[in-house]
């Protein structure tokens, strides 16, 4: 069991913005159940800003904490700003992640980017 920062444990024990948005403008899904980590990110966009964001995650404490952290980082950001949020931003906002968790459990930024992609595709259609 890797050692987690207090911030990771706080987000794991008290996740922010957990849940679904049934009327989401974009949904991003990443991960792989065989690896044990799957993340869904739901976004609601108003005036080019992420007005609301929710996550659902199956995974370890790091997976849940990174999802929660990501929603805090993305909420209120413009689409362009949100696109720039990286895996590294999420990890450093949590005070770092154990090296072994950097890859497999730190997918929330990818899920956000997919949700934005989904939103932009829907807008085009």
């Amino acid at each position: 069991m890797p050692a987690y920062t207090d911030k990771v444990m706080d987000h794991f024990m008290h996740p922010r913005n957990m849940g679904e948005l049934t009327d989401a403008d974009g949904v991003g899904m990443v991960g792989n159940p065989t690896c044990g980590d799957v993340m869904y990110i739901y976004i609601k966009v108003k005036g080019n800003r992420i007005d609301d964001i929710r996550f659902k995650t199956m995974g370890c404490a790091a997976a849940i904490a990174t999802s929660s952290m990501l929603t805090e980082l993305a909420k209120g950001k413009t689409i362009e700003e949100a696109k720039k949020i990286s895996r590294g931003d999420v990890a450093s906002s949590l005070g770092g992640l154990p090296p072994i968790k950097m890859h497999c459990s730190n997918l929330a930024a990818d899920a956000l980017h997919k949700a934005i992609e989904d939103y932009e595709n829907k807008k085009k259609a």
Binding site: P15, M18, M29, V30, G31, N32, P33, T34, C35, D37, V38, M39, Y40, K56, T57, M58, I64, H103, C104, L107, D110
Partner: peptide, 21 residues
């Protein structure tokens, strides 16, 4: 917190969306 409530939901996700980790 989990996006899945059934094996079929999980399978559907794996077939369509799973990223190859």
């Amino acid at each position: 917190m989990s996006p899945f409530k059934s094996d079929s939901q999980m399978k559907q996700f794996s077939d369509k969306h799973a990223t190859h980790e």
